[in-house]
């Protein structure tokens, strides 16, 4: 679908990016229901530190729900999720701890419209991490520079383009110095020319060794950055493989069907 948007991106050699043996996220036998609807069925997934995982699958397959369980925006009802050694239970202290270690970017950015870009970025460090204001501003400017919008720092989110807003959202998460980043379709609300700028930012993050789980339909991104692609359907993980194998040699029928639809073959 969007391979083209990616043609000009710098080539990345996935093998160059290190994956350690240390486990960052461990999901075992996780199940979730919305009322009587069984959205996630027996999910097992282990993510090592430094891994870059792309989650794909048809609409309604539970991709968002799964990654939202990782920072407890959704509650799972059975099984176990351990993030960075902390198990997610209903204990609020653990939840806030995990959330401050795990950054998340949303499809609709979810920036705070009443705060400037800079305030968006310094808010959580100041209130959650208790960073002194001056230091928080320095960090924020550093990351805004990194996503290439330091000159917009004093504007409001409503004054920025979609691509810029999504990059601000990434910078806002990075200001918390997270060890894991979750992306839920970060480019699907964007125009094609903005997709690239956001993906570039994400590639850069991957190259620096960030542990990432990314729900996306950007198959070009998956090929270049991911070291594992996970395919979900009907609330289950149907197939997971290295990107080359996944795209060139899909095993299950569902995956084949999905790929043929999404790649337009």
């Amino acid at each position: 679908m969007t391979d083209t948007a990616f043609d000009t991106a710098p080539a990345v050699d996935p093998t160059a990016m290190k994956v350690s043996d240390e486990v960052a996220i461990e999901i075992s036998n996780m199940n979730k229901w919305y009322g009587t609807f069984h959205v996630l069925r027996d999910i097992n997934l282990t993510v090592n530190r430094g891994e870059r995982i792309v989650v794909a699958g048809p609409s309604g397959s539970g991709k968002s729900t799964m990654i939202r369980c990782i920072n407890r925006l959704e509650e799972h009802q059975a099984g176990k999720i351990v993030v960075d050694g902390t198990e997610l239970t209903s204990d609020l202290k653990n939840i806030d701890k995990v959330r401050s270690e795990v950054g998340m970017c949303f499809q609709h950015f979810n920036l705070f419209p009443h705060l400037t870009i800079l305030e968006n970025c310094t808010l959580a460090p100041i209130w959650v991490r208790k960073t002194p204001k001056k230091e928080a501003i320095e960090t924020a400017m550093y990351f805004l520079e990194k996503v290439k919008i330091p000159d917009q720092a004093n504007k409001y989110p409503g004054q920025l383009s979609g691509g810029q807003q999504q990059r601000v959202a990434i910078a806002r998460s990075l200001c918390m110095k997270p060890r894991i980043m979750l992306f839920d379709e970060p480019t699907s609300a964007l125009d094609p020319e903005m997709i690239k700028e956001v993906l570039d930012t994400m590639i850069e993050l991957a190259q620096e060794g960030m542990t990432m789980i990314c729900v996306t339909h950007e198959m070009g991104f998956a090929r270049q950055v991911a070291n594992r692609v996970i395919f979900m359907d009907q609330g289950q993980i149907v197939e997971q493989n290295e990107p080359e194998e996944f795209f060139n040699n899909p095993r299950s029928e569902r995956t084949k069907l999905f790929l043929s639809q999404i790649l337009g073959h």
């Binding site: 920036l111 705070f112 959580a124």
Partner: peptide, 17 residues
């Protein structure tokens, strides 16, 4: 929008913050 709550939650702000 619900996204505002989620944005705040995902940053680790507690309920009152």
């Amino acid at each position: 929008p619900k996204g505002q709550y989620e944005g705040a939650d995902s940053l680790g702000l507690d309920y009152w913050q």
